[in-house]
């Protein structure tokens, strides 16, 4: 007995050891199953995308990719594809993504403020308002193809019938209105997201602070701008980042509503552009290059979000 003690003393007790990792192994086994799926199905394709982005490869015309260095990148940024990529795709992406996020934020904020005043009816409104969130992009794409149809669609018919014929338009099929139409369609589905989060934030506001401002005689507008909004801003920033990230990933509705990128490629935002390059033109090398651009944008936003929200 004593001998054992001495041995264990001599072996471990002497050197001050650093063993802050005793649970490493068990914990790793909790993560391992996820890794077993994620590595082949995400990590490997991601690595492949990087590799592909340096290849010249049309999937239909040639069986094997050929290395062409940074030419794909060069083409998009300076070469013969740059007019399209920098002149159309990126501006369309920026307008769509920022436009939709901004519209949804403003509507969501306004509606949350209004709903917060109606304690009783709020529940019914919320239920009705949130339903579109559950619809698939494909359904929405077809549904709005039907609604926006210029001559016989219900939207234009209603506008004409109610004396607002001036407002009737070609919606998604006209160059001038294609982008706003896409933004409105997205807002129809996703404004509830902003609304719900902002409303939850409003309900969690420290009441005494808001009430103190009221007692201090601040007007409703002043209270909203100087007290409520600043208190909500952390939540709003997180919600906007979530929404932006989703919008960069957005294309299902567009794929249906704007079957070939919309009039004048108005809705060929970066993700849709990559899909068309790969799926319609079979330029897998170029599609991969666009994918890398998209990956960089979304990763920057995602890591900023995770840091900012202290999620990791």
């Amino acid at each position: 007995m004593d001998k054992q003690v001495l041995q264990s003393n001599g072996k471990k007790g002497e050197q001050g050891k650093k063993s802050g990792r005793r649970f490493e192994l068990p914990f790793f086994f909790f993560i391992l199953p996820s890794l077993l799926i994620i590595i082949p199905i995400v990590a490997f394709p991601t690595a492949w995308v990087f590799w592909l982005s340096f290849q010249n490869w049309n999937f239909l015309s040639s069986a094997t990719p050929t290395f062409n260095g940074v030419n794909n990148y060069g083409d998009f940024l300076f070469g013969y594809n740059s007019a399209e990529f920098l002149g159309k795709i990126l501006p369309a992406t920026a307008s769509f993504v920022i436009g939709a996020a901004a519209l949804e934020f403003l509507l969501g904020l306004g509606l949350a403020y209004l709903a917060d005043m109606h304690l009783k009816g709020e529940k019914y409104f919320r239920t009705a308002f949130v339903i579109p969130v559950f619809m698939s992009g494909i359904s929405i794409g077809f549904l709005y193809t039907y609604i926006y149809e210029p001559s016989n669609g219900i939207l234009n018919q209603t506008l004409r019938g109610s004396g607002l014929g001036l407002l009737a338009s070609n919606w998604h099929t006209a160059l001038s209105s294609a982008l706003p139409t896409a933004i409105i369609t997205d807002a129809w589905q996703w404004t509830p997201f902003m609304f719900l989060i902002i409303l939850a934030g409003m309900k969690a506001l420290p009441r005494p602070v808001v009430e103190a401002a009221e007692v201090d005689g601040a007007t409703a507008l002043y209270r909203f701008r100087r007290v409520i909004l600043p208190l909500l801003s952390p939540i709003i920033i997180i919600a906007l980042l979530f929404r932006l990230l989703d919008l960069f990933n957005y294309l299902t509705v567009l794929y249906i509503l704007y079957p070939s990128g919309g009039p004048g490629q108005a809705l060929e935002i970066i993700s849709y552009f990559a899909l068309l390059l790969g799926n319609r033109s079979f330029y897998l090398g170029q599609a991969a290059t666009i994918a890398v651009f998209l990956l960089i944008i979304t990763n920057v936003l995602a890591f900023y979000l995770i840091r900012r929200g202290k999620f990791a």
């Binding site: 995400v42 394709p45 991601t46 492949w48 995308v49 990559a274 994918a291 998209l294 890591f303």
Partner: peptide
């Protein structure tokens, strides 16, 4: 961080290699 960020990985990025 990496796991969490995968939530936002656009499918279009990996779809062709996949």
């Amino acid at each position: 961080m990496w796991f969490l960020s995968l939530k936002f990985l656009p499918s279009i990025v990996i779809i062709f290699p996949l």
